[in-house]
């Protein structure tokens, strides 16, 4: 998912003795493969991950790892394994986190996975920190890339940083690398205009975090000159969500979790409105049930604060025109409102 393959690959190569197959980047081929063998009305993450799985199995993988499931995503690994077996591939799909619970060590031992006991904890901590640094850097990029003087300068530094991250030796090395690239990033020249337009990005996590699934919406918004804020990232989902959700439930009119990130998104809408953001974009994959439940409430909260919301539903489109029309119109509107 996005650039998270870097820390995940780092973790797996350091804690496992098994050979690790690096998944290919998501291309049209992946999507085509995935949707060909998926039920038509399943949500897009299923199709994207299935496509990647088929490609990885062809590259020689026989154990596939799947994460997640605050919604029906939690059952996807079983169906995907079945589909892969029907296609004649012999492999196992493992879900590491299901319904908020991590897979147990006893469960893991059933599979031919060899864990290196030495450095296990150390690698885990490094990976956690790496994800944390990446997310911090991405937050900065989303807020500032729109003002870059030289187009592409931010992306270049980010790419260099990820390559450097994949080669770090220890925690201290990681910290040093992060500081170096942070300095590089913050010293890039910026041209900040008087009127800054800020947009909040909320929605279903996979579509939000995988640029191939959202038509690189962050880059697009940045290229229009808009600052972007996004709450959802791996640091949030794995390490902060639990605590925050408890807080949200305490002092909010929504009293239920509503599945997956529905509650979070409604609360974030309120936060974005109160912080004076100019617009909110909500993206989800088509048929995403928790988000469909959250949409009327998001609309209600935003309307109280008079902040416009654009709802986008992503599916397999070969043509970007419809998406671009909606985006352009929304951005025109934000600019007009600001004047």
């Amino acid at each position: 998912m996005g650039s998270y393959s870097v820390p995940i690959y780092y973790l797996l190569t350091h804690i496992l003795e098994n050979e690790i197959v690096k998944p290919r980047e998501i291309t049209s081929n992946t999507i085509e493969l995935g949707s060909k063998y998926s039920p038509d009305f399943v949500c897009t993450p299923f199709k994207y991950t299935l496509g990647t799985m088929i490609e990885s199995v062809e590259d020689g993988a026989n154990i596939l790892l799947q994460m997640g499931g605050g919604c029906r995503y939690g059952y996807y690994h079983e169906l995907q394994e079945k589909i892969l077996k029907d296609l004649g591939y012999s492999c196992t799909v493992l879900n590491l986190v299901s319904g908020g619970k991590r897979i147990s060590y006893q469960e893991l031992k059933k599979y031919p996975i060899k864990i290196k006991k030495r450095h296990f904890l150390k690698s885990l901590i490094i990976t956690k920190k790496m994800v944390f640094y990446m997310d911090k850097m991405d937050d900065y990029i989303r807020m500032n890339r729109c003002y870059e003087s030289e187009v592409g300068s931010f992306d270049k530094v980010r790419k260099e940083m990820l390559i450097a991250f994949s080669k770090v030796k220890g925690l201290r090395d990681l910290k040093k690398t992060y500081r170096k690239y942070k300095k590089k990033m913050t010293s890039l020249p910026l041209q900040i205009p008087e009127k800054r337009i800020r947009v909040g990005l909320i929605g279903e996590l996979y579509t939000l975090m995988e640029p191939a699934a959202n038509e690189e919406i962050e880059k697009l918004l940045n290229s229009y000159g808009f600052e972007v804020k996004r709450y959802t990232n791996v640091t949030y989902l794995l390490f902060q969500k639990k605590r925050k959700v408890r807080k949200y439930l305490k002092n909010f009119f929504v009293k239920y979790r509503m599945g997956a990130d529905a509650l979070d998104n409604i609360y974030h809408t309120k936060e974005l409105c109160e912080e004076g953001y100019d617009g909110i974009i909500h993206i989800k994959s088509s048929f995403c049930t928790p988000e469909i439940g959250a949409m009327p409430l998001i609309e209600k909260v935003a309307e109280e604060h008079d902040v416009p919301v654009l709802f986008l539903s992503m599916d397999m489109h070969t043509s970007k025109v419809g998406f671009l029309t909606r985006m352009e119109a929304f951005c025109d509107m934000l600019e007009m409102r600001k004047e």
Binding site: S286, P308, S313, D332, M333, M336
Partner: peptide
């Protein structure tokens, strides 16, 4: 092929919506 609603306030587009899929 598409249908939309545009709301206007003070000579500005305040909000709009468009058919989705």
């Amino acid at each position: 092929q598409d249908s939309k609603v545009i709301q206007i306030q003070n000579h500005m587009i305040r909000d709009y919506a468009m058919n989705t899929l």
